[in-house]
Design a protein around this nucleic acid. Sequence first.
DNA 1: ACTCGCATCGAAAACGATTTAGCGCTATAA
DNA 2: TTATAGCGCTAAATCGTTTTCGATGCGAGT
Lengths: 341, 341
Amino acid sequence: MGVTIRDLAEHCGLSVSAVSKALNGYSDISETTRQTVMAAVRELDYHPNAHARALKGGRSYNLGVLFSDDSQSGLTHPFFSVVLEHFKREAEQEGYDITFIGHRMGNGRVTYLDHCRYREVDGVCMACLDFDDAEVQEVTESELPVVTIDRRFQGVPSVISDNEGGMRALMDYVYSLGHRRVAYVHGPSSAVSDARLTAFQESAARLGLTVPPEYLLPCRYTDPENARAIVRVLLSLPQRPTCILMCDDYNITGAKQAAVESGVNIPGDVSLAGFDGLSQMQSFSPRLTTVYQDAPRMGREAARLLIAQIENRPFLESIIVPVRLLRGETVVPVSLESKTI
Amino acid sequence: MGVTIRDLAEHCGLSVSAVSKALNGYSDISETTRQTVMAAVRELDYHPNAHARALKGGRSYNLGVLFSDDSQSGLTHPFFSVVLEHFKREAEQEGYDITFIGHRMGNGRVTYLDHCRYREVDGVCMACLDFDDAEVQEVTESELPVVTIDRRFQGVPSVISDNEGGMRALMDYVYSLGHRRVAYVHGPSSAVSDARLTAFQESAARLGLTVPPEYLLPCRYTDPENARAIVRVLLSLPQRPTCILMCDDYNITGAKQAAVESGVNIPGDVSLAGFDGLSQMQSFSPRLTTVYQDAPRMGREAARLLIAQIENRPFLESIIVPVRLLRGETVVPVSLESKTI
DNA sequence: ACTCGCATCGAAAACGATTTAGCGCTATAA
DNA sequence: TTATAGCGCTAAATCGTTTTCGATGCGAGT
């Protein structure tokens, strides 16, 4: 079907190996023959076959992406789709394609690692999944180059958002605006959730805030319905918080709805903050106060880290991606809130 | 590194070819030896190498995905990320992985078709891109199995959302609620946009509505800023529309903002409808009136159509995916709108 | 006994590339 | 004059499969 290296060789009157070496920049090929080969490449529109190359060289120029969350949102995940998109762009720029690693390959079940080997991916990026799964661990412990996002493993390079720093900055901010009764609707237990929760509690302690247990409620990520129910509970508390922190921006709409239903004004009666800085929320009104996570950079850094590893270039053990507090209009000084209690 | 078919053969005391045939269900292998082989597969944890298989058989069990839009949103596209996710799921179920086809492969530029050949994908799914691009046409005209989404090509199977039907239903609905001055903020020219716009105009004519040219404004998709500016113009018209149709749900937030800024109540003063039925908008308040496009089904059907083509099974020429009118709260009877003009 | 068919299996040639070993040749050095 | 050392190239092995074409042994039919 396609034109092979053999066709090229015949066309140039050279051996196959000479052509191969000319293409791959070997030093023992004269400049003139290299020119001849290159000209023939253009003329015949030759392109090497990735499979043959992978078969021989053991390199597929393919990166595996391991990615799943409890809600099975996959590519539609509002935060990780951004990370992924930029991971993909950076990878493409370096000449790598990406393939998604799943555990159902055709009829049968396959472990993640088996899928990686089947496609002979050169490395794997792991994000947003249950890192305690045995199948996942199997990959991190394999000889494959791996990079993890938002989770550290012994000896595995990682890209991590500065969750603690973001939470501290947010807490400092709401405190500075006079808030003393701060509730936190945190995500289900995971490395990220735990980091933020710890930072929340440490900040509270540092600032001298007492946080009653009913102010600390768990909520699924990216689940506005769940968020709505939980915020409704918070708003019906005898001692209502003056400020509510949500675990992600996506849940803000649910919180807003709960507020409307409870006859509570945002931010007139209660302040509200998110986490993520999703671009979809930029047109949220009033402008959302949230902690921006640099998802594009996380994706890029992850790709760079992984590729550096694969190509035996020096690389950092772990990269902390800074976050940024976005001061919107959903958190206001507590004195501006109407005293309705 | 991995365990090959040769290892299997030695372990079983068989020839490589016998093992291969046992694995691939050939009939000239006895049941007992097949059992032996299968047992060895489990014991040695053997998995075939996809590249070797692709090299020999010409099949890679890989589907290419050609996907881009003018705003370069890629995987983060609110509508197509859903299509893609379900395309991927269906493909996985049938034993296919997917790879994204771009035109920058490493340092150099590569045409889409070359990229397809390089990875030897078995077929290509094309969505949401400039179908008039020469590089795109080159793929549709190649010998590769192709399926297009939301665009028909001569001789190429396609999956298309019933845009016309949706627009007609929407128009009938707003008309039935008494709206006579209906504006349409339509998308930039494309097969989809044109289909909807035509349906809009035909419906208007059928219903006896006159649509002044200033009620027909173009707007980029998924660009709330753009939408905001345009709706602001609409709302400042001397003869204000009683109902505004937006080209997609994502732009609704921009429209809402424009309304707030113009002191216009939605839906109190002006009704508002979207298009897509994005799940992200489910928590929009008031509940959005929109035309739901069955993105998951579109993805699934596309994958099925493509795979049926690849595997030489019978397949339909084109699939029209029905839409559904979601009657929310943003379009209300015109008598309920305050007469402020 | 001889052939025929059947059931099982094996040898070997692909697939398209990379890579190692080596071969003639020329130029330089000893 | 004879080693030595590149230079520029080729031959051939190799990567892990699939697939074609036999090959072998055995029971049955004539």
